[in-house]
Design a binder for these strands. Structure first.
Length: 412
RNA sequence: GUGAUUGUAGCUCAGUUGGUUAGAGCGCCUGGUUGUGGUCCAGGAGGCCGCGGGUUCAAAUCCCGUCUUUCACCCCA
């Protein structure tokens, strides 16, 4: 492990057993649930034209400006590894014409961001996300959040909180920004350095600054929604009320903003206490993404599998619980038995039995030790005697008992 | 990008103020009489002490660089 010759790149990891079984559980249950909601799986390329991300995520966002793996290929084309899933998904859907403007798709795929790794942040990370396109409808937003709630339940994850807010329409956002700047200007020098910068670049972010002084100042500001049109306020209220009807608990959070440019109206976030500084396991929201001539309206979310796993582990859910166990181990005594067991293993495996055997000539003791470590339920022992008689010895590993039976009785 | 932090056997870690052949536990392998696991006992294999420079008679130990780990800021999943 010390030699970096065998290490993956910084912030990237090999996902192997037993952890992989937790990944598979998460992915399988997500696919099943998405299917029940009528979502189709979509796999877009990991590499896209840089412009796909610039236009949808926002040219000025940190994600685009300093976090993307962007480069020119041999043909001098500007490309980037996807830093998130929505842009590529919408690129695909927009290309479908009318049909794409009313679709439901999900993805489970690696994304890349060249940042300094830290708890809950890898350079290659794996969100599971959904996108539902269609004209803005608060019921669609509510259903999307309800789906997410179902997903958490399916995984067995408890102790998370769903926070919700609205950023209003694009027009509202302009008004909000203007008003906030005006209100903040007199106290500009009291804000932290970052927030003074944010005032010019992205005022909304001042609202969710962690700095105590900024927090105090933010608390004195009117809620964002007070600058929105009545229609926008009603939209948010309908989402919250619908969720309440459906029995999904959400928490209105006036300081929730989220960073990507494409968000309009509803935005939400799911946090979990086990996570540390990067405490959000999921983010979502309604968006309006301009690609080509038309804007694609939709709603969606992304949940980081790495962060979900950290949260699950805090709930006492481990990968070992999902590791395959049981099955049969074949012990061979002598060269003939080895070949005979190769044939028997094949038949058992064809029947779906998890079946293993040592392929090299090893002592019986070594073979039994291996069987024990594999955690199999039974061991089948064969030597020259048994082959001559057409029998096998079957040993129950938990009981320690064994009996000799006919070979043909092994294969049901 | 900024600021800390880590790096010694497969894994978790010891390694004293620089000083002989670098240790432990777990794991692994082989045995404990003919073909029987999990417990026990005995033995064994396995280390460019992250990498590259430097200081020194002497470096795992001190200095510099580099890569990596972990954590925080920024930002986000």
């Amino acid at each position: 492990m010390a030699s970096h010759e065998f290490q993956p790149l910084q912030g990237m990891s090999d996902i192997h057993a037993p952890e992989i079984y937790l990944w598979r559980m998460i992915e399988e249950r997500a696919r099943t649930l998405f299917n029940s909601y009528g979502y189709e799986e979509l796999r877009t390329p990991s590499l896209e034209k840089l412009s796909v991300f610039k236009r949808s995520i926002g040219d000025a966002t940190d994600v685009v400006q300093k976090e993307m793996y962007a480069f020119k290929d041999r043909g001098d084309r500007e490309l980037a590894l996807r830093p998130e899933g929505t842009a590529g998904t919408i690129r695909h859907l927009a290309g479908l014409g009318e049909e794409g403007l009313n679709s439901r798709v999900f993805y489970i795929a690696p994304m890349f961001r060249c940042e300094r790794p830290q708890a809950g942040r890898k350079r290659q990370f794996h969100p599971v996300g959904v996108e539902a396109t269609g004209v803005p409808n608060p019921l669609a937003d509510a259903e999307c959040i309800a789906l997410q709630q179902n997903l958490l339940e399916a995984w067995g994850l408890t102790g998370s909180t769903i926070k919700i807010n609205s950023r209003g329409t694009k027009e509202d956002q302009k008004l909000i920004a203007e008003n906030l700047r005006e209100l903040l200007e007199p106290v500009r020098s009291d804000l932290c350095e970052d927030c003074q910068r944010r005032m010019d670049e992205n005022v909304l972010r001042v609202i969710d600054c962690k700095n105590p002084t900024c927090k105090e100042i933010a608390a004195t500001l009117p809620e964002m929604r007070s600058f929105m049109t009545q229609e926008s306020q009603d939209y948010l209220n309908t989402v919250i009320e619908t969720l309440s009807e459906m029995g999904v608990a959400v928490e209105y959070d006036r300081s929730l903003v989220r960073g990507l440019d494409y968000y309009v109206n509803t935005v939400w976030e799911i946090t979990h206490g086990a996570l540390g500084s990067q405490n959000s396991i999921a983010g979502g929201g309604r968006y309006e993404i301009a690609l080509g001539k038309k804007g694609v309206p939709g709603v969606g979310f992304a949940m980081g599998i790495e962060r979900v796993i950290t949260s699950l582990e805090a709930c006492g859910i481990t990968a070992e619980q999902f590791a395959p166990k049981g099955g049969t181990w074949l012990v061979s005594l002598g060269a003939d038995a080895l070949i005979e067991n190769m044939k028997l293993a094949r038949e058992l495996r064809n029947q779906g039995v998890r079946c293993g055997m040592e392929l090299a000539a090893k002592s019986m003791k070594a073979q039994m030790r291996k069987a024990n470590r594999e955690g199999v339920e039974r061991v089948i022992i064969r030597g020259d005697e048994e082959i001559a008689k057409g029998t096998v010895i079957v040993k129950d590993m938990a009981e320690g008992s064994q009996e000799e039976i006919n070979l043909r009785d092994v294969i049901v």
